[in-house]
Nucleic acid binder design. Sequence first.
DNA 1: CCTATTTCCTACTAAGTCAATCGGAAATCC
DNA 2: GGATTTCCGATTGACTTAGTAGGAAATAGG
Lengths: 148, 148
Amino acid sequence: MKISTKGRYAVVVMLDLALHNDGEYVKVKDIADRQNISGKYLEQIIAILHKSGYVRSVRGAKGGYRLSDSPSKFTVGMILRQTEGSIAPVACLESDVNECEKCDTCETLAVWKELSDAINNVVDNVTIADLVERHEQNLLSGADNYVI
Amino acid sequence: MKISTKGRYAVVVMLDLALHNDGEYVKVKDIADRQNISGKYLEQIIAILHKSGYVRSVRGAKGGYRLSDSPSKFTVGMILRQTEGSIAPVACLESDVNECEKCDTCETLAVWKELSDAINNVVDNVTIADLVERHEQNLLSGADNYVI
DNA sequence: CCTATTTCCTACTAAGTCAATCGGAAATCC
DNA sequence: GGATTTCCGATTGACTTAGTAGGAAATAGG
């Protein structure tokens, strides 16, 4: 039941981009340094975000990344689904192929469905903008060296 | 974010034991046959339930397993925690050692905490007795070959 | 045009987890 | 004593995770 580093880092990347949204493109190395994550690994994760259309990029010197839209348009759920593949707690609940032949008479499935709904309800109701706001609240309330 | 077969099978085993609670001890092979799961694999899973004190056993011929207490005493959460190890979505939230040095200033951690709470809220509020009841409801309402 | 920078792309890997399988010892019933 | 059944530990093949490694292509500035 763990969220992988891929998913967690992806959220961190999106938040980092939202917080450093000053005209300039943000390069992977800067995010990696700020968040203390392997730059090469981050490249792969950002590639997913790029393919998903969540970030825009410019190559070459002075290049980098920025969010493709307002932070309020991106939920944590969207980001996790792209990077984790699926966040359903059991494969039976995955949207595409429901392969389990006893699905329609499966007793415990109802529990996993409830669980899935609860999970989605959380991650689909937190946006990157919410995280930015919380971050600013935290800055105001005294903690002066807040990291993401 | 998947629950492993270990956790899912463990819930199925507990429910199966609750449904076949007629004086006799239930043997692993019967559960395995009913649920179409490898008996040898089930042995390992039941061993965890045994160590956790959730089932009682008798060895030898006519031996087997039964629940150690009323079905209402066992929540899905209890069972999953024993078999999955932990159901926290990130390691930082694990009860014992909180090793991440930036935990107290971690922005995204709040989201994972919310997620964890939502997950716990579901699994800690469904007991094996609830599943038995639902099963009986389903039997009444016409589906005649209901499996677990 | 040259060079430094930065994204982009693909392949590889070491370690760990998952879902079993296998073989046999110990206990219990008839 | 023999059949049954739990108990215990070792092994395995496939897969996933969390990276590393190397280099091609694009761009800015000089």
